[in-house]
Write a protein that binds this DNA or RNA. Structure first.
Lengths: 339, 339
DNA sequence: TTGAAAGCGATACCAT
DNA sequence: ATGGTATCGCTTTCAA
């Protein structure tokens, strides 16, 4: 069943059918009705490939996960983000294609295919921070794109991010205000902007409250539960009384390590995480954390990308979401209301 | 840059360039070389939409998550599965499109779009068990498809599944052999084939070992951590000494509930989970569980779907993976080797 | 408001 | 082994 056949059945030209399908204004109402009836009866569906070829738009956007994003499958952050992206695509009648590059080899080989003409209208690329060779691929590909997370070394790129610095600042300041003195941090991977920014927020908070920063209390994590578990073990001999952990997933690992050593949270060590994903609520004790609007983040990525596709890359869009400290029990201060 | 232009630059016809690109045999070697050089120099990339239209193949497969799959964003099972699917698509030069339907309303509205001609060559659809109206949509769509998980009420569909019955049987039998007498189970959602099959395996094991089944010891869960947390609270008054939990994610919720009540695992209550995902290893104590080959599962889904696309739906393919009991500490029997 | 017709950029058949 | 060309099914001018 093609446009042509529908046109014939409705007794109009294929151009008119096309107009009806695409909701063009200047079609007489009874003609529109007749065409819609035929479409209904025949179950006609337009051929997407033909439409793409003729219109030079695919109505597909790609989500690219570079191989350097190591925690795509272990951190619930990404499924949640993907949900927001997918939902927003649906609402805009776009299709989402997923490009996950498991290794640098695959990435090198396959990346050029992502930017082939007639495949996608634009792409969302997960930021990886330093060494972002992926972003240079995209730029070469000469295709509209937007970065999820602050890209480094790429001043002209549009991106959506949360204010990781201020989020980490809030978390750390909170621990300071509760009277903690030896506040450690387990960072994210420090070759990512997220990891770097959250560490910077920690440093600023410590500095602003006139403590000296003890570099030994800074342990690099890698956004995994296991990594932070070991990082905690390394920290314990230094007797911290609080830890700001750069993700909820990592905070779970911290709590596991502390439980093994019979160290009480929050009495002996207070914990604040980052993300506010389900593991935070389900932790024992429930985790105080920095909430970021992940779903809206995904929504905004798509919305902004569609804007870039439509109106061009200039000027670069820079969208930064604020975060919110969610106080539960792991920081030692009971929340005034149950959250 | 188009085929035509490449042809002109190489001094051959567009048909020949097409042959070179698609690795046809009968092209003289020096001609092939010349064309490849021009492609290299110009950075030519074929237009996917045009190719799809002309060849009537898109080289795209769709992954459909019906709205009834409620745990897509909370269970690490799905990211892992998606990884396997994505990787296998990459290897076969296919693109993966993701269709997540968050609500029945969206699903009804959007499903017909998935099967529009020229969009995908075939789809993988996550099974939801009973009331699989989604699968009937696919069948109506008249497009090659394969079901992830055993479909119910759809005898003719090809599918890939794991042997959930025998997996649950192994888990429950293990608890019996360890001398547990009051073995409860927290099931998956019982409107899914996974939930039903794992419960059946539990029943068979109890029956075969000449216990009577105590229906009160069967609590329905919904594959979420929180759901099993509450299910556990409901079970405790019945004094079970073991629980077979139908997923690792749910087992985490069980352990949380037990910890709150100061009930020791495995001393007071032994636990066996299902899946063998990272949370199982990271649990305290490490979780005995039924391992299923999730990544290979994804691989096989794609491989089989490509076979269906190529060779037609008949006869229906039925692929069932075996499972393996992984003994850790939550069942009360120390593993002979550290795993 | 509608129709005719020229593309869009490949593939694949038919010749040679 | 190579070229010519019809064709895929739609969109989008242009003219009426």
């Amino acid at each position: 069943m093609t446009l042509e056949e529908v046109a014939k059945l409705a007794g109009v030209s294929s151009a008119t059918v096309s107009r009806v399908i695409n909701n063009y204004p200047h079609v007489r109402n009874n003609v529109r009705q007749r065409v819609l009836e035929v479409i209904e009866e025949t179950g006609y569906q337009p051929n997407i490939a033909a439409r793409s070829l003729a219109s030079n738009r695919t109505n597909v956007i790609g989500l690219v996960i570079p191989n350097s994003v190591s925690n795509f499958f272990t951190d619930p952050y990404f499924p949640r983000l993907t949900e927001g992206i997918s939902h927003t695509c649906n609402e805009n009648d776009y299709v989402l294609s997923l490009f996950i590059f498991n290794s640098q080899e695959i990435e090198r080989k396959l990346f050029p295919r992502v930017t082939r003409p007639g495949l996608v209208d634009g792409i969302i690329i997960q930021s990886t921070g330093l060494n972002d060779e992926t972003i240079s691929y995209v730029i070469e590909g000469n295709i509209p794109f937007i970065v999820a997370g602050r890209p480094m070394n790429t001043p002209l790129a549009s991106f959506v991010d949360v204010d990781n610095v201020s989020g980490a600042y809030k978390a750390t300041s909170h621990l300071i205000q509760l009277g903690r003195k030896r506040i450690a941090t387990i960072t994210g991977a420090l070759d990512t902007s997220v990891g770097i920014d959250r560490l910077q927020g920690y440093r600023q908070a410590i500095n602003n409250h006139a403590f000296a920063i003890d570099e030994a209390l800074i342990e690099e994590g890698n956004f995994t539960e296991l990594g932070s578990y070991y990082a905690t073990k390394r920290l314990l001999p230094l007797n911290p009384d609080a830890i700001f952990v750069a993700s909820d997933t990592m905070a779970i690992g911290v709590m596991r390590a502390l439980r093994e050593e019979n160290i009480s949270v929050p009495k002996d060590i207070a914990i604040v995480g980052f993300d506010d994903l389900p593991p935070a609520i389900n932790a024992v004790p429930p985790l105080t954390t920095v909430r970021q609007p992940i779903y809206r983040f995904g929504f905004k990525l798509v919305e902004t990308l569609l804007d870039v596709i439509k109106n061009g890359p200039e000027p670069p869009r820079r969208i930064i979401f604020e975060t919110e400290l969610v106080i539960r029990e792991s920081c030692g201060m009971r929340s005034p209301v149950v959250s």
